[in-house]
């Protein structure tokens, strides 16, 4: 049998030196007490942020025109969500890495049809509004070309529209039932009823906020608030939180790639997929470090260990 050669990056030498008393239970107890105290001190000094959640109600009251402009894109299928692709719909392929269309392969498991889920279905929950009911019937029974022409005309008119004294005022145009629907949706949003309708579409109990979140993310209210709070993507985004808190600082490497070329420039369209792929490779390298020649020798060569074990090296 051949004797295995000793590889200093894989094998450990046998320690023949001294052993000293060491009370690990006492050390652990002290650690818990010290960390608990430090936690209390930090919590007292710095508290924690808790900025109230935005609602469709607060959005449509603060900036009603932004709400309507977003709502019409949900209806005509041009909003961010409507054109997103998987997992919400098949309007697009989703991001890809070369020929790998991962999102598409995984399928549409969180179905969202913005026109019906965000506009038509919520409006149909409003009782006792005969004019709205007529408008909805006209809309749903119209052909898709007819709908598209109404929607295009309405979008155009909306650019000179305004919201004043509690009503949406859009110049008259050939938009069929769309103006009635949009006015009703705006009123519904401003009352808070739309927030509710979007989460209770499948019944009374709710724990799923996908729809109102997607709807709000399509508008600019949520993002403007984030911009003001230094939270947008080009400001190292979601790693931060409101106020001056450390947030998820450990995501720095992940968020960093979004700030640098080519991820931020020529690879931009598929940046998410590429950053993720890249991070997975890096993570795999980290996990498999003990088996990767070269990488696993760095610690021995850079000699930081001499600092870590300096007492030990002083004694040998």
């Amino acid at each position: 049998m051949t004797k295995k050669v000793f590889n200093p990056d894989v094998d450990a030498p046998v320690f023949k030196g001294k052993y000293a008393p060491y009370d690990i239970i006492k050390e652990g107890t002290i650690a818990v007490v010290v960390v608990a105290l430090l936690t209390v001190v930090l919590a007292v000094l710095f508290s924690s942020p808790d900025e109230k959640a935005v609602t469709i109600k607060s959005w449509s009251n603060a900036t009603p025109m932004d709400f309507v402009a977003t709502a019409i894109t949900e209806l005509d299928g041009t909003s961010g969500t409507a054109t997103y692709g998987p997992p919400y719909n098949n309007a697009a392929t989703g991001q890809q890495i070369g020929p790998f269309t991962l999102a598409k392969w995984m399928g549409i498991n969180v179905k969202v049809n913005t026109a019906s889920d965000f506009v038509v279905a919520p409006l149909s929950t409003l009782a006792d509004q005969p004019a709205l009911k007529t408008a909805l019937t006209a809309f749903t029974s119209a052909s898709s070309t007819q709908k598209a022409s109404w929607e295009a005309n309405y979008s155009k008119a909306l650019t000179t529209g305004r919201f004043s004294s509690g009503t949406l005022q859009v110049p008259a145009t050939n938009a069929g039932p769309v103006p009635v629907m949009m006015s009703a949706l705006t009123a519904m949003a401003r009352s808070g009823a739309l927030d509710q309708a979007l989460v209770t579409a499948k019944g009374f109990y709710t724990t799923d906020y996908t729809k109102p979140l997607l709807f709000m993310a399509d508008g600019s209210f949520l993002a403007n608030k984030a911009q003001a709070q230094h939270l947008s993507g080009d400001q190292w985004g979601m790693m931060n939180e409101t106020g001056s808190y450390p947030g998820q600082a450990w995501l720095w490497l992940y968020t960093m790639w979004y700030q640098v070329p080519p991820f931020s420039t020529s690879w931009g369209a598929n940046a998410d997929a590429l950053v993720w792929a890249f991070m997975m490779i890096l993570t795999l390298l980290l996990a498999l470090m003990p088996w990767i020649p070269g990488l696993r020798s760095i610690p021995r060569k850079v000699k930081v260990y001499r600092l870590i074990w300096r007492e030990h090296y002083k004694s040998v």
């Binding site: 998987p86 498991n109 799923d208 608030k225 598929n270 998410d272």
Partner: peptide, 26 residues
Amino acid sequence: YDSQWISTQAKDGINATGGGAFFNVL
């Protein structure tokens, strides 16, 4: 608000990997 912003931002990263079909951050 933090959870609204973080989830609506993070969804794109997770969706891009295909993970969004099983793990819906919203």
